[in-house]
Computed example of a mutant assay.
Amino acid sequence: MELPPATPHDACPPEVCVDFDGVAGCIAEAREAAVAFLRLHVPHARTTFRDDVLLVISELVTNAVRHAPGPLTLKLGLLPGGIGITVRDTSPSPPHSRTPDRTGGRGWPIVQSLARRVRVVPGPNGKTVHVELAW
């Protein structure tokens, strides 16, 4: 997958923003975008960090596909000491934990356990979930 160019100004940390149609196939596309971003901007990141980033993206995008009809946006950006992951979708409902069963319920607790910081911001047409992961 080809990514849009990173922010060209040297004073700004690299970031990428990718829009998806919100169907199940976009989960793999979001992971591909993350792999490309990490290879380009964090080539020496340890494998466990890359795996954590991909897991968080998979969970956030999967939740958006399941619970928010319509398009979604994934944004990745470098932060001091880590990476920021943002997913914007069309559902006004915030993510929440539920009792795990055969169909799910494990994702949001996993995201919270891996994150340095999690923030959910409601908007007029949905919500934005911000997650920060430390190196």
Rank of each mutant, 00 (worst) to 15 (best):
D101T: 05
W108F: 04
I85D: 00
A134Q: 06
G84K: 06
V129Q: 05
V42T: 10
R66P: 00
A34T: 06
F37K: 07
A33L: 09
D52R: 11
T48E: 15
K75Q: 11
P14I: 12
D52P: 01
G104E: 08
R106V: 13
D52Q: 12
R50I: 08
L114W: 12
D21Q: 10
E2Y: 03
V111A: 06
A34Q: 03
G70I: 14
L76H: 05
D19Y: 00
R66S: 10
P4D: 11
A33D: 02
A134C: 09
L40I: 03
V16M: 07
S91F: 10
R116K: 14
L78H: 07
H9T: 10
C12A: 15
I57H: 00
R31I: 13
K127T: 06
D101L: 00
D52H: 06
N63P: 00
R31V: 13
I110W: 04
V56N: 11
S58V: 00
R88Q: 08
N125V: 08
L40R: 15
R116N: 07
Q112V: 00
H9N: 11
P94C: 06
G70M: 09
P95N: 10
A33M: 11
P95H: 10
L60V: 08
I85P: 00
L78Y: 05
E15I: 01
H41S: 01
H130R: 05
A33N: 08
R106E: 13
H41I: 03
G70Q: 07
T73D: 04
A30F: 05
P71R: 14
G84I: 00
S58Q: 14
P100L: 07
F20V: 06
C12W: 14
L3M: 04
G123V: 12
R39K: 13
G84V: 02
L54H: 01
P8F: 04
D89Y: 09
P80T: 11
L54I: 03
P5T: 08
A45S: 11
H9Y: 12
K127F: 00
K127H: 10
D21R: 08
P109Q: 05
R119K: 14
L133N: 09
L38Q: 11
